[in-house]
Amino acid sequence: MSPVVEMLTSPLMQRALVAAVLVGACAPIVGTFLVQRRMALMGDGIGHVALTGVALGWLVGSWAGVVPNDALAVPGAVVAAVVGSLVMELVRERGRTSGDLALALMFYGGIAGGVLLIKVAGGTNANLISYLFGSIATVSASDVWLTVALAAVILGVGLGLRSALFAVSHDEEFARASGLPVRVLSMLVAVIAALTVTIAMRVVGLLLVSALMIVPVAVSQLYARSFARTMLGASVVGVSVSLVGLVITYWWDIPPGATIVVLAILVYGAAAALRPVLRHPAPVHDPHPEVVDDVLLADEPELARD
């Protein structure tokens, strides 16, 4: 059996590939909305809060005597991430000045809460490492099904309501003046961001989730002219680096999550460096705005002005 066929027929690798492709496709789609809303760091904030959720799930599991004791870790992460993302959205809506601070509180509170609770639950910090940095090699069949289900929700909302989410993210004031349900739509973005964090947790880890949401968007917006193409391009980049990163780590013993993120950043570096060569230059036009001055020159008719 050739090594490639061997890789593709390994059940462990098959599960990992499915998870990597879904996460690689979903994360940049949600990331495009986050960047457009100037909330690029929201994924990080949700990731940190999700760590508390992991530990909380562990704690509840150990109280209830569930076997294995981390069976409730992922559901715990989903609940904490969704609650955390909604809180962040409410903070953003209320007052922009304190948004930064609220995000910072969540970052540190999330990590500290996770480390404290895991100890209370009878675990060790080592148990958290696989959530912090990803453990795609341990993806189980039921994990894959959960990932497929959540990815379907993310893609359904992110693509199905793309126009409305674009309108709200692009110009919130205009969206309100059009009677769009701005709050509900903003919360939908927050919730699909939270779901993305929890499915990406297994692939790249909570600390690196945001990179997979944001870096492909950064690559894509260097070249794309439209919002739709930015999103498509980012998704293609996300799937590519996830697949290539995973295959690399099948052959070499290096951590998959970190490899995927480093690849994405390398792609960004290359895309930024080659941009002047690859992108069609903008047509040259008169850069001076046509603004009225108060001077009437000898050979021009008087223009009507206020």
């Binding site: 309108a167 059009s178 769009l180 002219r225």
Partner: peptide
Amino acid sequence: RLPAASGVPATALEVVTSGLLHGRRLRP
């Protein structure tokens, strides 16, 4: 005026199309 640019590009056509959404009409 347009809100400050976020960095994600949008074409004039995309911005104008968003004017067709309103109330409960969430798709063009």
